[in-house]
């Protein structure tokens, strides 16, 4: 698995997957739907799938002395690694926004979603939808990814819309508090999202392994 992951990082990955991690800086943007940072990080990962397909990576990989299911697992591992990096960056920037920059005027009057643990929870939900809809969809055929990406794009729009509107329901106002208040609830939401992310990614990987095993390449 280690060698397959190195293959993903050195041969298959597009530099854009790494460059697009900088989209996590969107966490600092006031008056902007900052959840789009997660979308752009996934867009960077999508570029790796595109360049890997152009390079016939799947064909190369299945000829290596590895089990086919390991080819799938390595792809998921690569995706999760980039997502983890993106999540950590978003987390660090969120912490900055909530502490050192907590009283900055643009953030105090911010009309759109604030950076807080709930924002990070939605980042994880967007990553989970990418793993389920895009990566899982890709492994139906091993080469088609247009429909999976459109599905993921639609899911992202719904999640961003939910994140931006749910807090207007009085009982859910805690979703928006920028610093310190209702932190327990916000972290509970983050924990729940992390569990969903882990479960969805695991199930998607298992399903992709089964599908990929049956494919004639």
């Amino acid at each position: 698995m280690k060698n397959l992951l190195i293959k993903e990082l050195r041969l298959a990955a597009s530099p854009l997957s790494y460059i697009f991690l900088s989209a996590s800086l969107m966490t600092f943007l006031p008056g902007y739907p900052i959840l789009m940072s997660a979308f752009f990080i996934c867009l960077g990962i999508f570029q790796s799938f595109q360049s890997a397909r152009e390079a016939n990576d799947i064909q190369y990989s299945v000829l290596l002395p590895v089990a086919k299911r390991d080819v799938v697992r390595a792809k998921y591992l690569f995706v999760c690694l980039i997502e983890l990096c993106g999540f950590c960056l978003c987390g660090a920037f969120t912490a900055l926004r909530m502490t050192l920059l907590g009283n900055a005027a643009p953030y105090v009057t911010n009309a759109l979603m604030n950076a807080n643990p709930v924002y990070l929870a939605f980042v994880l939900l967007i990553f989970a939808s990418f793993n389920f809809l895009f990566v899982g969809g890709f492994f139906k055929t091993g080469y088609k990814f247009a429909l999976p990406f459109v599905s993921f794009g639609a899911a992202t729009l719904i999640l961003v819309a939910l994140a931006e509107t749910l807090r207007h329901i009085p009982a859910l106002a805690f979703l928006h508090t920028p610093s310190g208040e209702r932190l327990g609830l916000q972290f509970a939401a983050l924990g729940g999202a992390a569990a969903i992310y882990a479960a969805v990614t695991f199930l998607s990987c298992r399903r992709s392994e089964r599908r990929f095993e049956k494919l004639d390449l």
């Binding site: 390079a55 016939n56 990576d57 190369y60």
Partner: peptide, 8 residues
């Protein structure tokens, strides 16, 4: 022949 990673 080789028809993968044509640009690496």
């Amino acid at each position: 022949g080789v028809d993968w990673y044509m640009r690496s």
